Structures are given as C-alpha cells and as structure tokens.
Simulated scan of single mutants.
Amino acid sequence: MYATRLICVTWNIHRARGHDGLVDPSRIHGAVTSDLAPLAPDIFALQEADEECRPHAGLLDMNRISAETGLAYQHDAPGMRWGRDSDGFLGTILFLHPRFNVTHSDVLDLPGHCYRGAVVIEAVCDGIPVRVISTHLSLFQPLRVIQMRIVGQYLRRRPEMQNILLGDLNEWRPWGGAMFQHRLIGRSLSGPVRATFPAKRPLLPLDRILTDREGAVRDMQVCTSRALRSASDHLPLKAEVLIEKSGE
C-alpha cells in the first residue's frame, strides 16, 4: 500500500552550455523559473552543475533556485561538496522539499577516467523513511557496472527503506543493460523509459528516475520547451514516485 507520492525532476544542465555552445547560467535559471518550478517538485536533482575542471566551482545561484522552487539545498555541509568552491559533489546537486526530515547524508566516490560520484540523502517524509540517490554515471558500460556495484554495496550497509535513484545514468538501452541486474545491486530498480538526449531531438533515454518498488514510478514525462532545449544538451525528466508504507 502506498502512503504518499513524490514529484521528482532530474536535469543534466551540461555546465550551462547550450546548443549554441555558449555558457549561460541565466538560461538555466530562467528555465527553472518558467518550466520546472511550476511542476512543484519534491525532489530536484541536477547533474553537471559545477564546472568541469578544478576547483569545480559552482555555476548557479543556489539561493535563487531554492527560492524559486521552495526546496531546500542539501549541500551546506562541506562534506557534501567536492570542494569549498563547489556547489555540489562532482556536479551533482540535490534539492528537497522541507517536509523531508533528513536523518543521514553521504557522498560516494565512483571510479572512472572522469570524476564521478553519487549523493545520498536518507530522510523521513510524511512519516515514512525514504532514500534519495542522485548520480551521473560513466559513458562506458563496464564502468557503469562497477559504479552501480559500489552503490549496491553501500546500500547493503544502510538501513532498509525505499530507494529512489535519479540522474544521468548514461544508459541508452531501454532495457537497462547489466548495470541494473538484481544480483549486482541487491535489489530491482525500475521505471518507465523516456528519451531525453539530445535536447533538440531526443533519441536516447540517458536520464532515469527509478525506484525499488515495482510499478511505483508513474506519469513519466520529458519536459520540453524552447527555454529548456536552448539551455542544455539534455531535457529534464519528471515523474511521480509512490512511496510505500514501512513494513508493507
């Protein structure tokens, strides 16, 4: 039995570089205001939201995004950021609705040629424990398998609760590939598949919103508008995730 629902939005903003090649954070802010904040998300995940090179400095105004969406920025603690100049952990940034009572937060280093990581927030929402994991995985399938294995090993050490995994998982195959095998991560993750890349003509479902409760991801939509298509090479993905009562 499901007790509550969460509106989730994830977007790889491509370091604010639009299809014209120009880096323009104001376009990201404008698209958040005009297209994403009205969706009233409970969970808002960004990827590639810090600069690529050291010191991985921030690109956006976190206070402005919080004000526009009504969501709380989850990286105030230094340990939740890659460095003092960063807004997130290797470009991954999470915002949560104030009704989330955060009980534990963590970051995971994931191996690869390019820096990769995951942000983990455990919280009680409407009286129900839930874990939110946002990440940006490798372009190379064998590395994605290793990265998801590390996420699975981490989950085995943590208390049992429903998991929501969202972000740019870089898996182009609709069926998901080896990285989603139950034996690899210790649980089955599922959700509808929608193409989000490239933004001008989406062909590949690189961005995902998944949970480990079958059939609990609903109303999956790719968010599209002129503002969103011009701001990044990915389109945002939005879905409703139903949260199961503890112990049911």
Rank of each mutant, 00 (worst) to 15 (best):
P142M: 10
L143D: 14
V145D: 09
Q147G: 08
R149L: 11
I150S: 05
V151M: 13
V151Y: 01
V151R: 00
V151C: 07
G152M: 13
G152N: 13
Q153F: 05
Q153G: 12
L155R: 05
L155N: 02
R156M: 15
R158F: 04
R158E: 14
P159R: 13
M161G: 09
Q162R: 03
N163Y: 01
I164K: 04
I164M: 08
L165D: 09
L165R: 05
L166Q: 07
G167F: 01
G167P: 03
D168F: 02
D168M: 03
L169H: 01
L169F: 08
N170E: 09
E171Y: 02
E171Q: 14
W172E: 06
R173P: 01
R173W: 12
P174T: 11
W175K: 14
G176D: 07
G177D: 06
A178H: 08
A178I: 01
A178N: 08
M179T: 05
Q181V: 00
Q181H: 12
H182Q: 13
R183M: 09
R183F: 08
L184V: 07
L184A: 06
I185S: 02
G186M: 11
G186P: 08
R187S: 05
R187L: 14
S190I: 03
S190V: 04
S190N: 11
G191I: 08
G191D: 11
P192T: 06
P192S: 06
P192Y: 06
V193A: 03
V193W: 00
V193Y: 00
T196E: 04
F197E: 00
P198N: 11
A199F: 03
K200W: 12
K200R: 13
R201P: 00
P202Q: 12
P202S: 14
P202C: 13
P202W: 07
P202F: 10
L204G: 01
P205D: 10
P205I: 06
L206G: 00
L206R: 02
D207S: 11
D207H: 04
R208M: 07
I209D: 01
L210K: 09
T211D: 11
T211Q: 08
D212Q: 09
E214Q: 14
E214I: 08
D219W: 09
M220N: 04
M220L: 15
Q221K: 13
V222C: 02
T224N: 04
S225P: 08
R226H: 07
R226K: 09
A227Q: 12
A227F: 01
R229A: 05
R229C: 04
S230D: 14
S232V: 03
S232R: 03
D233Q: 10
H234D: 03
H234K: 06
L235M: 12
L235H: 05
L235I: 08
P236D: 08
P236C: 11
L237K: 02
E240K: 05
V241D: 03
V241P: 01
V241A: 04
